[in-house]
Design a protein around this nucleic acid. Structure first.
Length: 686
DNA sequence: TAAGTCACG
DNA sequence: ACGTACGTGACTTAT
């Protein structure tokens, strides 16, 4: 059914070559061998575990052992992890060439090496490398300090990088890491192209349990029963935090070598779990692992910002904000902080005695947009506050922020695409978030004018049309809905025609608007109450629309019910490609939370399949760009949209080929549709 | 650090 | 009776 994307040959080769079964058996043998020592190793609480480095820090080691000893009831896997935890540790600090040579020999011969970098910053593009850790066998790891600033002897950074380069860039040397997208950036900062990325424990955890935390401390605890040294324990936190380059080598080694060690052990635990499930294996190998590389490229590309334009907009918006502030204080009869919901509430509901429309979760009177909109029907002040709020938002979040985030040399902003944050499989964008740039209002869209193409390029935007509704038609296999898409109908118009029982060409804009709200509601697992609230109609009327919809689209009704049942039975739901979303609360006794889980269960297969599809598209498009050696660069992904810098002479080619690539990453039971926009800024291209 | 709000798909 | 449309990130105030 699915046209699988071209497997990356390198990855496939690595997976086949390093099946790990033999090696796993060896490791298991070692674990079993340790089993006889289990009782005594559990008694280790209070006495330090053997370590070459860090012997002096009994605190950390005893805390680790203590955590093991206090483990509650043990499952089989818990026993395994206890044994994992009891493997003796040998962490070395590599500060001379002899040891470096020995480790290089080790990793050259290893079938798989865990790699981790320590740096000066979480900002991968700005970070400087401080050290590298490596592990090839559980319990054995090294830390190679490169830039610690406390006078302790260490190897020269450039010498080590030069010596390691052939291995780091060697595609045949299989590597595993925790979030290797980050480490790839770090090495790229020094002109080194990390290759041979075979596994990533962050993505392994994400594919297995997207709803749980994926940081190394949590993973070690959850899967290995081990308590790890936390970053704060080494560097402190808040204002007192020091850079990793200030940390003493011995402590740095304890921490950093452990990261590589834990990464390797986590992989040995997680990878078999993924292999055991074909759907998860597909998502991991063919979607997440290849997507990681594409995301790294996009992050490095960045997008060009017109800071001068934003500065000009800042002048205008700033002036308008001052005017509004004056008017608002005038209407309120006193000055107050308009940015404080609490103070707004005091003015509106206290001083002016306006009616309270709704309350916040904590019970305070709400002053959100919906409330102010309602009050604006009868009073002048709320409308002004709304104007002020929206402009203040534009000002602080975009107009002021984006220029400060731009690289002063290139004028480009580089977002971080977080691949393991959204439980549904979507990406998340942060620092800055470029997935929530305003578009819905006239004022907001002006921000998009400041996103501009590179010199000699146009911005090209390609977005999937109605992707989630198409996926709903596919999953539900609803004849009527599939037929509407097959016929190329305007789906909201078609829906209106069905629920109002009128011919397609007699649907008016109001009816279409209703149908659109209903279609969105379906994707979100709405109730009659929710629909009524959204449309401003009686609940009974909303219920009638829903009933009519399900009457005309019975496949969709069955899908909703089927999904609720499947979620309850299995505790998870799946996308078309086999991605899982676990819903621990689906069987719970907390009614509202269970219903929330049911709505998430209905939504996740659609949102998640859309996420799968666009990731496959990104992989296919990037592969094509590279194969054809084009200069077009992929810049952004906004859930159903991709944005590119396209040189003028490649525009026609992209216009012709992109929709084709994006629509054919999979063959669903409905056609996929991609529309293209081109312009001298994101607003024009959209 | 939490709460409230609002930007996006 | 009870809450009530899914998924995100960022900013500001207030504690």
């Amino acid at each position: 059914m699915l046209a699988k994307p071209e497997d990356a040959p390198l990855l496939r080769e690595l997976f086949e070559r390093y099946a790990f079964k033999t090696w796993l058996r060896d490791v298991e043998k070692k674990l079993t061998g340790d089993r006889s020592d289990e009782a005594s190793s559990l008694d280790l609480a209070g006495s330090p575990l053997p370590q070459e480095v860090g012997r002096g820090d009994a605190n950390l080691t005893s805390r680790q052992a203590g955590a093991i000893a206090s483990s509650p009831t043990k499952t089989l896997s818990q026993e395994t992890t206890d044994i994992q935890a009891s493997i003796s540790k040998h962490y070395e600090c590599v500060v001379n060439e002899e040891d470096l040579d020995r480790w290089i020999k080790k990793i050259e011969q290893a079938s798989l090496t865990a790699v981790d970098t320590e740096t000066t910053s979480l900002d991968a593009l700005a970070a400087e490398i401080v050290g590298i850790s490596l592990a090839v066998t559980p319990g054995e790891a090294c830390y190679i300090p490169l830039a610690h600033r406390n006078g302790e002897a260490q190897l020269n950074r450039d010498l080590v990088l030069t010596r390691l380069r052939p291995w780091l860039e060697g595609a045949a040397h299989a590597k595993v890491g925790q979030n290797l997208k980050y480490d790839t950036h770090i090495f790229a900062n020094y002109g080194i192209t990390l290759q041979g990325i075979a596994f990533d424990t962050l993505l392994e955890s994400y594919v297995l349990e997207s709803h749980l935390p994926h940081n190394m401390d949590s993973l070690a605890e959850r899967h290995l029963g081990m308590k790890t040294i936390r970053y704060e324990e080494v560097c402190g936190k808040g204002a007192h935090q020091i850079g990793f380059d200030q940390v003493d080598l011995q402590i740095a080694t304890d921490y950093a070598a452990e990261d590589a060690d834990i990464t390797l052990r986590l992989h040995l635990e997680l990878w078999p779990q993924i292999q055991a499930n074909p759907g998860l294996l597909y998502v991991y190998q063919n979607i997440e692992m290849p997507a990681m590389r594409v995301l790294g490229i996009m992050e490095r590309n960045g997008i060009r910002i017109d800071s001068a334009l934003l500065a000009k907009q800042g002048q205008q918006v700033g002036k308008r904000l001052l005017e509004l502030e004056g008017e608002i204080h005038q209407l309120a009869g006193q000055p107050f902080n308009i940015q404080s919901p609490k103070q707004i509430a005091e003015i509106l509901f206290g001083k002016l005695e306006l009616p309270v429309v709704k309350k916040t979760p904590s019970g305070a009177p709400s002053t959100d947009e919906e409330v102010l909109q309602k009050l604006a029907e009868d009073y002048p002040l709320p409308a002004r506050i709304l104007d002020y709020r929206s402009l203040a938002k534009l000002m602080s979040t975009y107009i002021e922020k984006l220029p400060r985030m731009a690289d002063p040399k290139t004028g480009r902003v580089h977002t971080n695409f977080s691949q393991a944050t959204a439980v549904t499989g979507r990406l998340a964008s942060s620092d800055p978030n470029l997935q929530n740039i305003p578009v819905r209002t006239e004022e907001g869209r002006r921000i998009r004018e400041a996103f501009i193409p590179a010199e000699g390029c146009k911005l090209l935007s390609a977005d999937y049309s109605q992707i989630e509704l198409r996926i709903m038609a596919h999953i539900a296999e609803d004849e009527n809905l599939m037929a509407a898409f097959a016929a190329g109908k305007d789906v909201h118009q078609a829906t209106a025609s069905e629920i109002f029982g009128i011919p397609l060409d007699q649907v008016n804009s109001e009816q279409r608007r209703y149908a659109k709200v209903i279609n969105f509601g379906l994707i979100y697992g709405m109730s009659a109450f929710g629909l009524a609230g959204n449309l401003g109609i009686e609940r009974s009327a909303a219920q009638n629309y829903i009933a009519k919809y399900f009457d005309r689209y019975p496949g969709v009704a069955q899908y909703m019910e089927r999904t609720r049942l499947a979620a309850r039975e299995h505790g998870y739901v799946e996308t078309v490609f086999g991605r899982r979303l676990w819903l621990p609360e689906i069987k719970g006794s907390n009614g509202p939370r269970r219903q929330g889980a049911e709505r998430a269960a209905i939504n996740a297969p659609m949102q998640g399949t859309a996420a799968d599809l666009i990731k496959l598209a990104m992989i296919a498009v990037e592969a094509w760009l590279e194969k054809e050696q084009l200069k077009t660069r992929m810049l952004l992904q906004v859930h159903d949209e991709l944005v590119f810098d396209v040189p003028i002479d490649e525009i026609e080619l992209l216009k012709a080929k992109l929709p084709d690539l994006m629509c054919n990453v999979a063959q669903l039971k409905v056609p996929l549709l991609v529309s293209i926009g081109i312009g001298d800024n994101w607003e024009e291209a959209h």
